[in-house]
Simulated scan of single mutants.
Amino acid sequence: MALPPRGGGRFNPRFNRQPEPEHRINERIRVPQVRLVGDNVTVGVYSTQEALKIAQEQELDLVEISPTADPPVCKVIDYKKFLYEKKRKEKEMKANSKQSEVKEIRFTPGTDDHDFDFKAKHAEKFLKDGNKVKAYVQFKGRAIMFQDRGQLLLLKFAERLAEAGSLESMPKLEGKRMFAIFTPKTATKKK
């Protein structure tokens, strides 16, 4: 026995809609008058039909730039080129505004010199890249008795990172962790 087609075989308009463009263009502009701007255009208030004719003569699009203005501002431009430029600028701005991260470096009260040097080199690299570094000493079990070792270790770490970054505050104990946060030197100069 054959099953009927799923959805009843009817046309469903919700699934066939074209995505609404970001700006109203050409015939989608439904106001009687617009303020026209753009290259090779006399700036002024025109009827929408007249503005559309000017855009068609130049083989360009009439794009509503500021719909809330009175009358709405429209520009005569190549719409696809306009969207491409806008997307490129947004991408460029996003690339330039790099978010700084907080990188963590973990020690124990018994961290030896080789591990200390290895972790210090990584911390210097993180600071030079513009990231903050949170260094902490993890105390397990009875190791909590050696809080002074942890504090000395973090202060020694601060001394080692003095060229690349600065210590935000003295080491603090929170639960079974003693931590210190370092900020990059370049970030402190910009403030």
Rank of each mutant, 00 (worst) to 15 (best):
K94E: 05
K94S: 04
K94L: 05
K94N: 02
A95H: 00
A95R: 02
N96L: 08
S97F: 01
Q99E: 04
Q99T: 03
S100K: 13
E101A: 07
V102D: 13
V102S: 14
K103T: 03
K103A: 06
K103G: 01
E104T: 07
E104R: 07
E104D: 03
I105Q: 02
R106F: 05
R106C: 06
R106Y: 06
F107L: 03
T108Q: 11
P109F: 08
G110V: 12
D112K: 14
D112S: 12
D112H: 13
D113Y: 11
H114K: 10
H114D: 10
H114Y: 10
D115A: 10
D115W: 05
F116L: 08
F118V: 14
K119C: 04
A120T: 14
K121V: 06
K121P: 06
K121G: 10
H122V: 09
H122R: 11
E124D: 06
E124N: 06
F126P: 03
F126M: 11
F126D: 07
L127Y: 02
L127R: 03
L127S: 09
K128A: 13
K128N: 15
N131V: 01
V133C: 00
V133R: 00
V133M: 01
K134P: 04
K134D: 09
K134L: 14
A135N: 01
A135I: 03
A135Q: 02
V137F: 01
Q138P: 03
Q138N: 14
F139L: 07
F139H: 05
F139C: 01
K140C: 07
K140H: 09
G141P: 02
R142L: 15
A143F: 00
A143S: 15
I144L: 15
F146I: 00
F146Y: 15
Q147D: 13
Q147S: 14
D148I: 01
R149P: 06
R149M: 12
G150M: 07
Q151R: 12
L152W: 12
L152R: 14
L153T: 02
L153M: 14
L154P: 05
L155N: 15
L155A: 08
K156F: 00
A158M: 02
A158W: 01
A158Y: 00
A158I: 01
R160I: 02
R160A: 08
R160M: 04
R160N: 07
R160Q: 11
L161F: 12
E163L: 14
A164E: 15
A164R: 15
S166M: 12
S166K: 11
L167P: 11
E168P: 05
S169Q: 12
S169R: 13
S169G: 10
M170L: 14
P171C: 09
P171M: 05
P171Y: 04
K172V: 05
K172F: 00
E174V: 10
E174G: 09
G175L: 05
K176Y: 12
R177K: 12
M178K: 02
M178D: 00
F179I: 00
F179T: 03
A180G: 12
F182K: 03
F182E: 03
F182Y: 08
F182N: 04
F182T: 05
T183I: 09
P184A: 13
K185P: 08
K185C: 09
T186I: 14
T186D: 12
T186Y: 10
A187Y: 10
